[in-house]
Deep mutational scan, measured.
Amino acid sequence: PEDEKKAKEALKRANGDEDKAKEILRKLGVDPDRAEELLRRLR
């Protein structure tokens, strides 16, 4: 869904750096736990 698209985009923008991607997602208003879960799934 929408969050998943955001997560993929964030990872791309962060050049695969998960911590940076998490930060980006947090700024986009995605719940930190949700962000973590999404990134884990994309790994």
Rank of each mutant, 00 (worst) to 15 (best):
D19I: 13
R40P: 04
A7H: 02
E2I: 10
E9Q: 08
R13I: 14
E2L: 10
G29D: 04
D19C: 12
D19A: 14
G16F: 09
R13Q: 15
E4V: 15
K22G: 05
A35R: 01
L39R: 00
R34P: 02
E4N: 07
D3M: 11
A35G: 04
E18T: 10
E18Y: 15
R41H: 14
E2A: 11
E37M: 04
R43T: 13
A10L: 03
K27R: 12
A14M: 05
E2F: 09
D3W: 14
G29P: 00
R34S: 09
R41Q: 15
N15Q: 10
N15M: 12
R41A: 11
D33I: 11
L39E: 02
A7P: 01
K22D: 02
D3F: 09
D17H: 07
E4C: 07
P32M: 10
K27W: 07
G16N: 07
R26K: 14
D19K: 14
E2M: 10
D17W: 04
A21L: 05
R26P: 01
K22I: 11
K27L: 14
R40H: 13
K8M: 13
K8N: 07
E37T: 04
A10N: 01
R26E: 14
R41E: 14
R13N: 11
A35C: 07
P1Y: 13
A21G: 02
E37A: 05
L28W: 11
K5G: 08
A7W: 04
K22L: 14
D3S: 06
E23S: 07
E2P: 10
K6Q: 12
R41F: 07
K8T: 07
G16Q: 04
D3A: 08
E18H: 15
K5F: 11
G16T: 02
R26T: 15
E9I: 10
K6Y: 12
L11M: 10
D19Y: 10
A10T: 02
K5Q: 13
D3P: 04
P1I: 14
K12G: 07
L38S: 03
R34T: 13
D3K: 03
A35Q: 02
N15H: 13
G16D: 04
D33T: 12
L28E: 11
L38W: 04
E23A: 09
D17F: 05
D3Q: 08
R26H: 11
R40E: 15
K22P: 00
L28S: 08
E2Q: 09
D3Y: 08
E23Y: 02
G16L: 04
P1K: 14
R34K: 14
K27E: 14
L28N: 08
I24G: 02
G16H: 05
L38K: 00
E4T: 10
K27V: 10
A35F: 09
R43F: 06
R41S: 12
E36R: 04
E4W: 15
P32D: 12
K27D: 13
A21V: 04
N15V: 05
E36V: 04
E23D: 10
D3I: 10
R40D: 15
R34Q: 10
D17V: 06
A7N: 01
I24H: 05
K27Y: 07
A7S: 03
D31K: 08
L25C: 04
D3N: 07
L28G: 07
A7V: 12
K6A: 12
K6G: 04
L39G: 00
E18W: 15
D3T: 06
L38E: 03
K12C: 09
G29R: 02
R34F: 10
L39Q: 00
L38M: 10
A35V: 12
K8E: 09
L42E: 05
E4R: 09
K6H: 11
K20P: 01
R40I: 11
P32W: 08
A10E: 02
G16M: 05
V30H: 03
R34H: 11
K12M: 11
A7F: 05
L42Y: 04
K8D: 06
D31M: 09
A21C: 03
R41G: 11
R43I: 15
E9S: 07
V30R: 00
R43W: 03
L11Y: 05
A21D: 00
P1V: 14
K20R: 11
V30D: 01
L25V: 00
I24L: 09
P1S: 15
A35N: 01
R40V: 10
D19R: 13
A10S: 05
A21F: 07
D33Y: 07
G29T: 00
R43Q: 14
R26D: 07
D3R: 04
R41P: 02
K5D: 11
E23T: 06
A10R: 01
L11E: 01
A35Y: 07
L38D: 02
V30Y: 15
R40A: 14
E4L: 15
E9R: 07
K20A: 11
D33G: 11
K5L: 13
N15E: 09
L38Y: 03
R13K: 14
L28Q: 14
L42N: 03
L38H: 03
E36I: 05
D19S: 14
E2K: 07
E9D: 12
E2H: 09
K27I: 10
A21M: 04
A35M: 08
E37D: 10
E18L: 14
L39M: 07
K22N: 06
E36F: 03
K8R: 14
K20L: 13
E18F: 15
D31L: 09
D33Q: 13
L38A: 06
L39D: 02
K12S: 10
E23I: 08
R26N: 09
L42P: 02
G16P: 01
P32A: 13
R13F: 10
A21R: 00
R43Y: 05
K12D: 11
L28P: 00
D19T: 14
D31E: 11
A21E: 02
E36K: 06
R13L: 15
N15G: 12
L38Q: 03
K20V: 14
R43D: 10
K20D: 06
K20Y: 09
A35H: 03
P1T: 14
R41M: 11
R26V: 15
A10P: 00
E18P: 12
K12E: 13
A35W: 08
E37Y: 03
R43L: 15
K20W: 09
E37R: 04
A7T: 06
K27H: 12
E36Q: 04
A10F: 00
E2T: 12
K20G: 07
E23P: 00
A10Y: 00
P32T: 10
K27F: 08
K8Y: 09
L42H: 04
E37L: 04
I24K: 01
K6L: 15
L42I: 13
R13A: 15
R26I: 15
A10I: 06
I24Y: 08
E9N: 08
P1L: 14
I24T: 04
A7R: 01
A7M: 05
D31Q: 09
R26W: 05
L25Y: 00
V30A: 02
R40Q: 14
D3G: 07
K5N: 11
R34N: 07
L28A: 11
D17M: 05
L25K: 00
P1G: 13
D31G: 08
D33W: 09
K12A: 14
K8P: 01
R43K: 12
N15S: 08
L42D: 03
E37W: 02
E18A: 10
E9W: 06
P32S: 12
A14H: 03
G29A: 03
R26A: 13
L39A: 01
K12N: 10
L25E: 00
D3V: 08
K6D: 07
K20Q: 10
D19N: 13
P1N: 13
E9T: 06
D31W: 04
K5V: 12
E18M: 15
E37Q: 07
A21P: 00
D31H: 12
K20T: 09
I24S: 03
A21I: 04
G29Y: 00
L25R: 00
E2R: 07
R34Y: 15
D33M: 12
R13D: 11
E23R: 07
K12W: 07
L38N: 02
A21K: 01
A10V: 04
E2Y: 09
L42Q: 04
L42F: 06
D17P: 01
K6V: 12
R40N: 14
A7I: 09
R40G: 13
D19W: 09
R40T: 09
E2D: 13
K20H: 08
K27A: 13
D31S: 12
V30W: 13
D31N: 10
K22H: 06
R40M: 08
R34V: 15
D17R: 06
K5T: 10
L38T: 03
D31P: 14
P32G: 11
N15R: 11
P32H: 09
D19H: 12
L28F: 06
E4P: 03
D17G: 02
P32E: 13
A21N: 00
E36M: 05
L39K: 00
L28M: 15
L25I: 02
L11P: 01
L28I: 08
D33A: 14
D17S: 07
K27N: 13
R41I: 08
D31T: 10
K27T: 12
